[in-house]
């Protein structure tokens, strides 16, 4: 396949995936919330309410892009894109299966983190540009939250890089081949605290993507809609899509780092097209199981208080991940043959 065709195909794939995924995750979220709360959720539009997201999307798109008084027009319009675009860019390096990846970059992991940080900037600009006090509070919260959670997340990532010796996401997945006990989460021989690392990473990715119980930036019972308060129609819609795309990235990364990415739990691999499908289905299975957990968590807990969130990061997650880092380093040094 010529390189340019590959790129174009991938852009089409990622854009449609991001859009549809956001739409249908909203549906899943509403259905999931419904059943957790013992009601049905959307059911009127289409069978099982499956057309609901399309109706919602049409509604959002047909709304006037209204600029409230006092906003900074440029920041206000750019901000949603700054949340959306980096998330889409990150899809570039995600290996959906062994061969199904846009670009196998050696520093793929680093790239994702670099782009993930831009997302906060988008939220901050949006909240600052909308000239709304609630939004401003949300923006400030969002930044300090992200600063706090990036640290344990990065430390955990360093641990993972240490044990795998690479930042290439596909390589990381390849190193987990074989039975499911070869997935990193079960590799206690690599680092004793592997399951804890997994938990830390997962919690941090929740916080990074501003998901409940860390949804300080939205906090609908305190700050109306937080950073999105002033956004009309598709401005809000793009933010929303960006948020869901970010959730996907976070969960995908968790799956790749700890749950073996596209590896099947049994040592069975195919070549050619079948192999792509086989890998992709395992990857998506893991991905959506994690996303379901994210939704499940949201509908179970109350929201954390802001300083508790920082406490959790600085007093619990960072010390434990640091300890984990040292332990792993020692383990590698002392038992290099493992």
């Amino acid at each position: 396949m010529p390189e340019w065709l590959r790129v174009i195909l991938f852009i089409i794939f990622v854009l449609s995936f991001a859009g549809l995924n956001a739409a249908y995750l909203v549906w899943c979220e509403r259905k999931g919330a419904g059943h957790i709360q013992r009601r049905i959720g959307p059911k009127e539009v289409g069978p099982f309410g499956l057309l609901q997201p399309l109706a919602d999307g049409a509604k959002l798109m047909s709304k006037q892009l209204f600029l409230p008084k006092g906003v900074d027009p440029i920041l206000f319009m750019v901000a949603p894109l700054m949340v959306m675009v980096p998330a889409i860019m990150s899809f570039c390096v995600i290996p959906f299966s062994e061969t199904f990846v846009a670009r196998e970059i050696n520093l793929g992991l680093l790239m994702i983190f670099a782009f993930a940080s831009v997302n906060v900037l988008g939220l901050l600009l949006g909240s600052w540009g909308s000239a709304n006090k609630y939004a401003l509070i949300a923006g400030a919260r969002c930044v300090s939250q992200n600063v706090a959670y990036e640290i344990p997340m990065l430390i955990t990532t360093i641990t993972m890089v240490m044990v795998t010796n690479t930042m290439n996401l596909n390589e990381i997945v390849r190193s987990q081949a074989g039975w499911f006990i070869h997935w990193h989460i079960f590799r206690l021989d690599m680092s004793l605290l592997m399951p804890v690392s997994f938990l830390i990473f997962f919690v941090c990715s929740l916080a990074e993507t501003n998901r409940a119980p860390f949804d300080m930036a939205e906090a609908e019972s305190e700050l109306i809609a937080g950073a999105y308060t002033e956004y009309p129609g598709m401005g809000f819609g793009v933010f929303f899509m960006g948020e869901y795309a970010n959730i996907v990235i976070g969960c995908a990364l968790t799956a790749i780092l700890f749950l073996g990415g596209w590896q099947a739990p049994i040592p069975l691999n195919f070549g050619g097209f079948l192999g792509v499908l086989w890998g992709m289905s395992w990857f998506f299975l893991k991905l959506y199981a994690l996303i379901f957990t994210v939704i499940w968590i949201r509908w179970t807990y109350p929201r954390t208080q802001f300083y508790e969130l920082l406490n959790l990061s600085w007093k619990v997650l960072i010390p434990i991940s640091l300890f984990n880092l040292i332990l792993t380093a020692l383990q590698i040094k002392i038992f290099p043959w493992l």
Partner: peptide, 16 residues
């Protein structure tokens, strides 16, 4: 009250 604190689900259980 739990809704004020950001937890939605207990509200519906209580309503039940």
């Amino acid at each position: 009250f739990v809704l004020d604190l950001g937890g939605f689900t207990p509200l519906l259980y209580a309503f039940d």
